[in-house]
Design a protein around this nucleic acid. Structure first.
Length: 270
DNA sequence: ATACCGACCTGTCAGC
DNA sequence: TGCTGACAGGTCGGTA
């Protein structure tokens, strides 16, 4: 599900609703590997802690915690493919696949729900969490170009590689490549600097628009309040196989690159 | 070091 | 109606 715009929307929503609250209790169900940090360590670290704020780093949701004693810590939530982080009234029944529920001082619950169990919960104590790669929204054109220098990897899987840029997923990789008019299979290291600059601008523009519309709800993504996003209505290529390109009417083509479905216009993207 | 590919999970939907 | 297979927004680890 969730890529940068969806994770940003969820983090902002959760922040608005629970910043400043204290965790009164924590209940977990399910097993490793959902819990990168096992429940018997996670529980005591969370209970009694004040949630200073909630923010996004790459595709991670970071909750900044101040425990009653000791050093500040960070509670990391990765939504994987189907993860949800919801703030709910406790009387609302917990949906199936609820793996964590944190009781908050306001009486509400912060719930982590994840049917497919690709999501991860972890405690991060070794200094500020910075994520595996660079931030797409703030990286400079120079740094952006440097990421791809000398790489034979196709640009599409390169955009998905979190150690380079973190936060970009399958939807926004396809959408930004269409906006930049670059063929997804082009070896990353063989793209000219002007075209990389165009991609840098296209990626930032697509991500910002998607954040403004609350992300893309392709099947089941919802934000912290359970609301769907609207950016799926703006998709130019993603999941539009066979439909006419918005620019030139050529049918959108689907191929598999790096094991992921990839959508592009064979005429606009060379 | 880099790049590819299957594995990890559950749910949904199209086709027979 | 019910089964089967393909597919899904992500990431990791093993292998070439």
């Amino acid at each position: 599900v969730p890529e940068l715009p969806e994770v940003e929307t969820v983090a902002n929503g959760v922040h608005t609703r629970i910043a400043g609250e204290t965790v009164l209790d924590a209940t977990f169900s399910g097993l490793a590997p959902t819990f990168l940090t096992p429940p018997h360590i996670l529980g005591p670290a969370l209970i009694g802690a004040r949630i200073e704020g909630v923010r996004r780093v790459g595709k991670h949701i970071v909750c900044d915690l101040t425990p009653p004693a000791g050093e500040p810590t960070q509670f990391l939530v990765h939504l994987g493919m189907t993860g949800r982080l919801l703030v709910s009234q406790p009387e609302v029944p917990r949906p199936p696949h609820t793996h964590a529920a944190l009781a908050l001082s306001s009486g509400r619950e912060l719930r982590f729900i994840d049917p497919r169990r690709f999501g991860r919960l972890a405690l991060h104590t070794a200094g500020p969490f910075t994520g595996p790669g660079s931030e797409p929204l703030t990286i400079s054109p120079d740094e952006f170009a440097r990421l791809f220098r000398g790489r034979k990897l196709a640009i599409k899987p390169a955009l998905l590689h979190q150690g380079l840029l973190h936060g970009v997923g399958n939807i926004y990789a396809d959408e930004s490549l269409h906006l930049a008019r670059i063929r997804p299979s082009t070896p990353a290291g063989r793209i000219s600097r002007p075209r990389l600059d165009r991609l840098h601008g296209a990626l930032q523009s697509v991500l910002r628009q998607a954040i403004a519309l609350g992300g893309s709800s392709v099947s089941d993504y919802v934000d912290a309040e359970g609301h769907r996003g609207f950016f799926q209505l703006q998709h130019r290529v993603y999941a539009r196989t066979g439909l006419p390109c918005s620019t030139c009417s050529t049918p959108i083509r689907r191929v598999v690159l790096g094991g992921r479905s990839t959508h592009y216009c064979p005429r606009c993207q060379r």
